[in-house]
């Protein structure tokens, strides 16, 4: 039987000051898979991420119908603290995540674990593992504020990973980073995905997302307008353009040439490698 660590069923949500930010959203995420969330700013991506560990609606208030089940816990029936041990959220700006009081990387990663009351030996072990996983080994003694943007975001991921969440949620983790920072963070996410971590990631960098997302949902004005396998969703070029999302360039290119190439939508390339193969043949 398949395991679904994340089940979202017909969720509709209004903030106290904004109506229907999410409308009838339903999806499931299989254990060990990566779900990408795409859509323009204001479509509800962040709200959906925050609903996965109960911050929405428990902290923000407002009205929510439907249900969210994460790691077999209904978010209405468990506290944010309980949910947070199973669902780790990484925010867009790493500076929002860091404690602001830790003077070293090690302390920063240990901080959350200490708050949760883990014994010292366990904390030390997990800190070491988490720092290694995100590729920051050797920088343990540095101040979090001496790091580059990409390193800070990887540190933020480490602080979340140290808690060993069943589900890792990343809300536009590369939006504020330069190309090196984006590369570093994507490499870290890909490694975690390859290691079987269940991941939900909201992203505007569609061409990167195409290389590692198993499933993708597209949000627009609070509605889920597309859902399915990554390849299927990203090949829906016209629908994506309608909601203001640019598909990968190579996918859009192939869509423009679909008549000349006599190619059907389910054969569109969504990654550079697939496109190199296709156009290498076409131009032979």
């Amino acid at each position: 039987m398949e395991e679904y660590p994340v089940i979202v069923e017909d969720v509709t949500y209004s903030y106290p000051t904004r109506e229907n930010v999410l409308k009838h959203i339903s999806f499931k995420v299989k254990k060990g898979e990566v779900l990408g969330i795409i859509g323009p700013n204001g479509a509800g991506k962040t709200t959906l991420c925050l609903s996965l560990n109960g911050i929405v609606p428990q902290f923000f208030g407002g009205r929510m119908s439907g249900k969210v089940i994460v790691a077999e816990m209904n978010t209405f029936e468990h506290t944010i603290a309980e949910l947070s041990t199973k669902v780790g959220i990484v925010f867009q700006d790493p500076l929002d995540q860091l404690s602001g009081i830790a003077t070293t990387l090690e302390e920063e990663v240990a901080f959350g674990l200490a708050m949760l009351g883990f014994p010292k030996e366990e904390i030390d072990k997990r800190v070491e593992e988490a720092i290694e996983t995100v590729g920051l080994k050797g920088l343990e003694g540095r101040s979090p504020y001496e790091l580059s943007g990409g390193q800070q975001q990887r540190l933020a991921i480490a602080t979340v990973l140290a808690v060993k969440p069943e589900i890792l949620v990343l809300d536009e983790p590369t939006a504020q980073l330069d190309p090196i920072g984006k590369f570093e963070v994507f490499e870290t996410i890909k490694e975690l995905a390859a290691g079987g971590q269940t991941i939900i990631v909201a992203e505007h960098e569609i061409e990167e997302l195409a290389t590692f997302a198993d499933e993708i949902i597209a949000l627009y004005d609070g509605e889920m307008v597309l859902k399915g396998e990554g390849k299927k969703v990203l090949s829906s070029v016209e629908r994506l353009k309608e909601i203001g999302v640019d598909p990968p360039s190579v996918t859009e290119l192939t869509h423009l040439l679909r008549n000349e190439l006599e190619i059907s939508q389910d054969e569109y390339p969504i990654t550079l490698d697939e496109a190199i193969k296709l156009y290498g043949e076409v131009l032979k």
Binding site: F183, S249, L272, Y279, G280
Partner: peptide
Amino acid sequence: AFIRPPQVVELNLKVGKF
């Protein structure tokens, strides 16, 4: 400088037949 060109430019360079 750790910068990737736009995807269509990379396609052009790697296919090498345009």
